[in-house]
Amino acid sequence: MPKWFQSKVLAKKVWTEGLFTLSIDGTGVEPFEPGQFLHLAVFPDGIDADADDDTREKQRVNRPYSVASPYGESLEFFIIRVDDGELTPHLWKLEPGDDIEVSQKAAGRFTLEKTPDAENLWLIATGTGLAPYIAMLRTEEPWQRYKKIVVVHGVRHANDLAYTDELQAIENVRLGAFRFVQALTRETADGTLNGRIPALVESGELESAADCRMTKEDSSVMLCGNPAMLDSMEEILGKRSMTRHRSKSPGQIVLERYW
Rank of each mutant, 00 (worst) to 15 (best):
T192R: 10
K114G: 00
A125P: 00
P142G: 07
A131E: 00
R138Y: 02
V150A: 08
R196D: 05
A183L: 14
P132Y: 07
K148H: 03
L193F: 11
E119L: 11
L184N: 04
P142D: 13
R196M: 09
N172M: 14
N120D: 02
P132C: 12
A169K: 14
R138P: 03
M136V: 07
H153G: 01
L130P: 06
P116R: 08
K114N: 07
E171N: 07
I124F: 03
L137Y: 04
A189H: 05
I149W: 10
M136W: 09
T188N: 13
N120T: 12
T185W: 09
T188S: 12
K114A: 01
V181M: 12
R156T: 14
R186C: 15
K148R: 01
R174G: 07
H153V: 01
A169W: 06
A158Y: 13
H157A: 14
Q168Y: 08
T126D: 05
L161G: 06
D160C: 01
F180V: 08
F178Y: 14
I124V: 08
G154W: 09
I170V: 06
N172G: 12
R138L: 06
F178K: 12
E140S: 15
E119A: 11
Q144K: 15
D190G: 03
G127Q: 12
Y163H: 10
L161W: 00
V155T: 13
L121T: 07
D160K: 07
I149N: 04
L167H: 12
V152K: 07
V173Y: 01
A169G: 05
A177D: 06
L193D: 09
F180D: 02
D190H: 03
K148V: 12
I197T: 11
E171W: 04
